[in-house]
Amino acid sequence: MARSPGGRRGERERDQNRERGGGQQSEENEFSDKLVAINRVAKVVKGGRRFSFAALVVVGDGRGRVGYGTGKAREVPEAIRKATDHAKNHMIRVPLRDGRTLHHDVQGHYGAGLVVLRSSPPGTGVIAGGPMRAVFETMGVQDVVAKSIGTSNPHNMVKAVFDALRKCYSPRAVAARRGKRVGEIVARRSDTAGGERARA
């Protein structure tokens, strides 16, 4: 009789552990990661050179959350794991228009890197190269046109893209900041676009 409560308690703990494990697994499966660049670096020591690997990884959930991280280790898998953990801990949320593109055109700058991101109509696809494409695909953007002006260093390009993404705002956020209604902001944007088309 004395072992019966303990047995039930053990079963209850096993169920709780199983639930926690399932939650962690679903959370892990929620994110997709892409390896952007990996570089072998050497440190000169007394006995010769000591090699290690530096990885740059982008992580996103496909619904507007994205982050990047770097990691360095003696082995490639460990460097990728460190970079992935760093990216998951430093994610940002970007508002998307209809869940597929940016709300407006924006520029980003970091070091010698300058990127221009433009929102696009449906069916455009992701027109971007190299590191920028990895950011958009993990973030869940389906239609965007991006151009990198300046450096081709993947670290500076990714940081310039994130600088641009931090400047993206939704009409609701702009309306709340300016004390207006969302309809006024969107209507004004459509009227401006119509005027520009008429002048063209």
Rank of each mutant, 00 (worst) to 15 (best):
L117Q: 06
V59Q: 06
A55T: 11
R100M: 07
P121Q: 13
K82H: 03
K88Q: 13
V45Y: 06
P77N: 05
E78V: 04
G47W: 02
H90M: 01
M91N: 05
S120G: 12
G62I: 13
G47E: 02
R65Y: 13
M91T: 15
G125E: 07
M91W: 08
L114W: 08
K46W: 01
G60S: 05
A112L: 10
R65N: 15
P121L: 14
T124Q: 02
E75R: 08
V59M: 06
A73K: 05
A87M: 11
R118S: 14
R81H: 03
F53E: 04
G113I: 10
I80V: 07
R97I: 05
A83P: 08
P77T: 05
V116K: 03
R63Q: 14
Q107H: 03
H90D: 14
G71F: 05
P122C: 06
V57F: 08
P121W: 07
S120N: 06
E78A: 06
V45H: 03
R93E: 15
S52C: 05
N89M: 12
V58F: 05
G60T: 05
P122R: 13
Y110E: 00
G111F: 12
R81K: 03
I92M: 13
G108I: 10
G48Q: 08
V66Y: 11
E78C: 02
V94S: 01
R81C: 10
R65I: 11
H103W: 15
H103Y: 15
A83R: 06
G71L: 05
G125C: 00
G125L: 02
K88F: 12
D98H: 14
A73S: 11
A112I: 09
F51M: 15
T101W: 07
V45S: 01
T84R: 12
L117W: 00
R50T: 02
K88L: 15
R97D: 13
V57Q: 10
K72L: 08
R100Y: 08
V44T: 13
K46H: 07
S120C: 14
G60F: 01
T70V: 10
G69L: 02
H104M: 11
V57T: 08
G69E: 10
T124N: 10
G60E: 11
V57L: 09
R63H: 15
Y68F: 15
T84S: 01
T70F: 05
H86R: 01
L117S: 00
R65T: 14
G62C: 10
G60Q: 11
P122S: 13
V44G: 06
G64E: 14
K43C: 04
L117P: 06
Y110H: 11
V57N: 00
G125H: 07
R49G: 01
P95C: 12
R118G: 10
G125W: 10
S52K: 03
I127E: 14
R81L: 00
A73F: 04
G67N: 11
L56Y: 08
R74N: 02
D85C: 01
R93C: 14
P121G: 14
